[in-house]
Write a protein that binds this DNA or RNA. Sequence first.
DNA 1: ACTATTTGACCCTG
DNA 2: CAGGGTCAAATAGT
Length: 291
Amino acid sequence: MKEETTLVEEKLGMKDDLEHGKELANRLMKDLKNPFSSKESNKSLISGILRSYENAIVMLGLDQQTLKRRSPERMDQRYKKRKNGPRKLTYVLEQDKKELQLDDGYCWRKYGQKDIHGSENPRGYYRCTHRFTRGCLAVKQVQKSDADPSCYEVKYLKSHTCNVNLSTTKSSVVSVPKEEPNNVHELHVAEQSVDIIKHMKFEETMLSLDDLENKNEIFRTFSFSNLETENITGRRNLMENLSPTTTSESGITNELLSASSASVVNSPADDSCFTSLENILDLSYDDWSLI
DNA sequence: ACTATTTGACCCTG
DNA sequence: CAGGGTCAAATAGT
């Protein structure tokens, strides 16, 4: 059962989104009456309206995916009782603790773990803590490398839309066209030190670029070693460079993405960047004059 | 009391 | 049907 405080938070969030959408709609209406208003500003307003309502829909849990998964019939069928009764929980192994420490600055909540066929190590599934409160759909998968147990492969799926700024985060969010999990862009960086990783980035990026052109990518994979505690600061700096939500000024990722026609949104603070919406908007750009 | 993790069950896709 | 992804009850941690 969901906590009451969380529900209140969600409702407030929905209210904010809906009111924001309403405000933007009003501004759009005024703009449309103004012969000097630009197409760009109208586009931006509509983008904001769509985003607000999409946020609200997600918070309501009424998006298509949630509805499909949570239909009453299905809820009746599932999870009535565990067959084997109460289970024993094992303590998190030291290695797993390290995995949990692979902090990229965002708040992640583990929601699953699976043994992967052909891999020695299980894959952990994490989603953004703000999934329900802010509708953030960011997900990542963490798996210890079979080849090098000191390395972890981290796959990021979907961008953060929760606008939670890292203490170290600057101002940009990268958005990528066509946010489909099946389109994979892998950026592998498996090294023992930050310096080496930095050194590696360019080559790895160039390789990735090929993939990207071939696959019309979206999701990004990183692998990195378990750096020692004294390197945490360095690692944080590294993640600033490598994270999918990395900053525009430093990000090799940004260069990569811009080279592949990705768009870079100015600030997460003023634009939570629903890439799907941007896609829609981009596709229909020619039609804006009709509005 | 509340939040986070673990893990068996279930669903979806190929 | 197998494998991967997700859900949510049970449990642990704070």
